[in-house]
């Protein structure tokens, strides 16, 4: 069986739709996103429906999620950040479910497409910039000048800070995309080895496939967590300008 390990990432249009020159065809990734949205909405609505004093299993899991995200926000942004709770919780749950559901064989990992992660990253970043300018006006440009910089260093520090700012959306997008793609490629290669190896030696890569799968579940969680925490950090920078260092734990 000679198949490229990158083959699972290819997308084929099931229903080609072309709207005013815009390609909005339905493919596997789109269907997976619908599944994720439907599943998360169903689970969370069901979890929140009963509101018992003694929570059901689903409800206590949802409460765990809410508490977890609230802690991230309070740690990085402080109390002001709770305004963004719905957005950040949605982002976290969506990315987490995309990552984890993509591990089921036969499904598709939506976050292994850089279009998706880049859209998230650019949205988050432009939101933090817009928020900064709304809250602080022109003074927000001061984010390019780290506190305590002597005047003669400014021509050097400004370009460095500018580049390090512009690197934020890129690193946010590439991190999630690369981790997901790399993990699935490794799984593909290992499982390919299992099949070509046969019974005699094939059990070895198979054991590694199982071990990698466990690791990938961890990675799926970590990547969703990192994406969320960085979103909070960037939004927090916009909130507090240079006070951020004090707040950012």
């Amino acid at each position: 069986m000679e198949e490229s390990p990158l083959h699972p990432f290819e997308l084929h249009n099931y229903i080609p739709i072309n709207l005013f020159g815009l390609d909005i065809s339905i493919n596997k990734a789109v269907i997976m996103m619908w599944v994720v949205v439907g599943l998360t909405a169903f689970l969370l609505v069901k979890a929140g429906a009963s509101r018992r004093m003694v929570p059901t299993k689903l409800q206590s899991l949802a409460e765990l999620f809410v508490g977890f995200i609230r802690d991230i926000i309070l740690d990085t942004m402080g109390k002001d950040g709770m305004r963004f709770f719905p957005f950040i919780a949605t982002l976290f749950v969506f990315i987490l479910f995309c990552n984890i559901l993509g591990l089921i064989p036969g499904t598709y990992t939506v976050t292994s497409q850089i279009v998706v992660t880049a859209a998230f990253a650019l949205f988050v970043y432009s939101m933090s910039i817009a928020l900064g300018f709304v809250l602080h006006g022109v003074k927000f440009l001061g984010i390019l000048v780290p506190p305590g910089t002597p005047g003669w260093l400014l021509p050097l520090m400004m370009p460095i800070e500018l580049v390090s700012q512009l690197a934020r959306p890129l690193s946010l997008a590439v991190r999630l995309f690369a981790n997901m793609t790399a993990g699935h490629t490794i799984l593909g290669v290992l499982f390919g080895l299992t099949i070509t190896g046969g019974l005699l030696i094939g059990w070895l890569p198979f054991a590694f496939t199982v071990a990698m799968n466990v690791l990938e579940v961890g990675i799926a969680f970590i990547q969703a967590y990192i994406f969320t925490i960085l979103t909070c950090v960037y939004l927090g920078d916009a909130f507090h300008l240079h006070g951020a260092e004090g707040h950012a734990h």
């Binding site: 934020r168 890129l170 690193s171």
Partner: peptide
């Protein structure tokens, strides 16, 4: 997987720093 598991937490931080270096270089 709990986020306070030191193995996974360390893994997350290691992965983060690598991308941070690369992204700024590319930009």
């Amino acid at each position: 997987p709990p986020s306070n598991d030191p193995f996974y937490a360390g893994l997350g931080q290691a992965v983060r720093i690598g991308t941070e270096l690369l992204a700024a270089l590319i930009v």
